[in-house]
Design a binder for these strands. Sequence first.
DNA 1: GCGGACTGCTTACCT
DNA 2: ACAGGTAAGCAGTCCGCG
Length: 819
Amino acid sequence: MEAWLLDVSYVHSKKAIRLLLKANGKSIRAYHKHEPYFYLKPKDEVRTDAPKENADGFASTIEQLKKIQTFDGEKNYNLERIEPVERLLEGKKTQVLKLVVAHPGLVPKFQDLVRQYGETYEFNILFTRRYLIDNQLTPSSPVEVEFEDKNGLRWVTSIRTIPSEEIPPANVLAFDIETYNPSGMPEAKRDPMLMLSYADAHSSNVITYAKPARTERFVQNVASEKEVLERFAQVLREKHTDVLCTYNGDVFDVPYISERAFQTRATTHFGRDHAPAKTKRLGLRNVTSLGGRIHFDVYNTVFFLNYIGATKLQRMTQLAAYEGLLGKTKVDFPKDQIVPAWDNGGQLLTDLIEYSRQDAVAAYELAQYCLPLFYALGKVTGTTLFDASRFSSGQLVEALLLKKAFDRGEIVPNKPTAEEVAARTAEPIQGAYVKLPQAGVYENMAVYDFKSLYPSIIISHNIDPSTLDCECCRGDGEAHVSPMGHRFCKKRLGLIPAMLQEVLTTRFAIQKQMKALDKDSAEYKQLYGKQWALKILANSTYGVLLYPRFRWFRRECGESVTAYGRQYIQDTIAKAEKDGFNVLYADTDSVFFQYGNKSKQDVLNFAKNVNAALPESMQLELEDFYPRGIFVSKKQEETGAKKKYALINEEGKIKIRGFELVRRDWSKVARNTQRSVLEILLKEGDVKKAAELVRTVVNELKSGKTPMEDCVIYTQLKKKVANYEIKSPEVGAVIHARKNGVNVPEGATVAYVITTDGGGGASEAITEKARILELAKNYDPEYYINNQVLPAVLKILGSLGYDKDSIKIKGTQKGLGEW
DNA sequence: GCGGACTGCTTACCT
DNA sequence: ACAGGTAAGCAGTCCGCG
């Protein structure tokens, strides 16, 4: 039959893989046995004198391996099978032994026991990964599957993926809870859940046991917290929910309802099996899964989108995500009002209920936005939706390479030991080239950049751990030789270049296909997701080559990539200068120049010439023409600042990079003023007008009319508060808040304001005057004028040869006087 | 004992 | 828990002064 493969898990009790399938609107549970195994490359000395390339040469080793036994707590096991096989190892065809064991738990035990006989490989690949790779299955895709019934369970007899870009027909539902939180942060063992909201494509509802019964259609009144939980479990069953969405449910909502179900003795469960939700560690954070349903935590996906730069959210709250990703807004409800709302009822409770409902709706809508992207990412990397939405980019690249390595008969490198990681971390490599710009305003600029510079270098020069210093290209001109002097094979394509080539060519083909489609069509969205996924993978690959924990880490590969990169960009700069262009700036893969009295055609011809000399998969492409652009000088120095510029193109669109106004750790008043100044200068070139605007802002700050929210500075605390050596303003604000009974969680993004508090008057350290937003009673105009607005705008005006006095902008610093 | 210069910690940005 | 290159604020410290 044909079915959709939604999810894969391992069931210890049955020592089998459990599949979640979907066919004709119904979910199907099926089991599948799979052989766990790992590889052993025996030491040479235990080989017999049989022919070198003949694996039977391992006869004596095999005899010894057969004798090895281990105990798993229940019984003793030998290796199930010892299979001599040929695989590619470090670029060479190699005879190894495939050691098959009875169940996955025995892999680490046997690995430990056989290590004395040689090198072991692929012993720590998660069993569900192993299963998907070995069967070449793609989750979230249709499969052709056959079963047989045994003991009332469906056992898979054959299964094969039918490639499809379509989104699986899963039933999606989102939920959100509100909890009693008298001491700030709710504690699941103690504080009850008050209401639970859920939303899907059809409706949104709130289940609650609030005392004054609400009569709105969407409120379902029940008698107790226990009944809320039971009712929700019933909803999940009735709606046959396959994908259960939350916002931060990994850490909060799902563990919370599980604990509350336990505390209230609710006879219920939220998965499709009877197991409680499982929370485990994945990397640095906790993830929570439910049996038989896919828990899709939108927070992870929003975080990922922001991390890769797809969005620039200042905070990761659900509200910020809703506004930032979907461009919509919803009601907010102050957390400290939940207890009064619940205790006193009335309008406040009505508001809380509505807020809760909207939270579920927002989680659902955000999920609908993210699902196509992460389904696609899962399909490309061969991971389930659960994993694809939680993996880091390193794990995603690893997943894809594990799959591709299997398809090529290649054994994957082992993960490094802690000592290896430390050694790798100790020696950083030289990175990209950045040309120092001269501060000033420039006209008639063109910007070029290399299309996928690092991926295309890896492909063009076959950079891969297994192609480094190969034996087959020893002679002059036989290998690619990087500017670092490292040699890469010219005969056999490496795993990573092969993967990247496929990724880039597929992406290119998809983008071509997309051009013919309606942007609102389902097909377009699917293809968009796929090309997005491919882009993520291409962009992450160079980074992981130098990531110390990566299986394919290789210093020589990483430093060759950047060395080639520096060479290509510097050659391009030299060529542009030789052709008579004035090169202003360059960073990694981009070059900015003025074409002066030359024509745009000359600019295009330049690229044509450059491209003719580049390897096939490399390309320099025109980013845009810019009639005007600004580079500023470095603070306190004459030299220009790198990574800070503003450009305006012929359509009047402004591109700004690096300035304070793109940073969240600057106040809105400073950022908005800086933006306005830049816009005036780029569009009109009117310094007087810009100065006038600054004076207005300064006056507003002085008079106290500036809204407090424009003075908020956001800074993330990347360590625990106690671990800071220096007490910076954000740390000061948190310490003050905690002293005053407001809990700020570790690792939070702190919203704070510099106030006039602190006791020491104007000279008091800024840290002592910092207050978290909730506790800020005012703002310190002097600080915002002298430390925020003026530095931000003077950086620009100052770079153009104007100083504070010439444009009559004055702060409030003592001695400057009033004006 | 004071104030400016300098250093180091820290964050968030750019490619 | 993908890389290195970079600007910049603020705390804390150094250092010269005399």
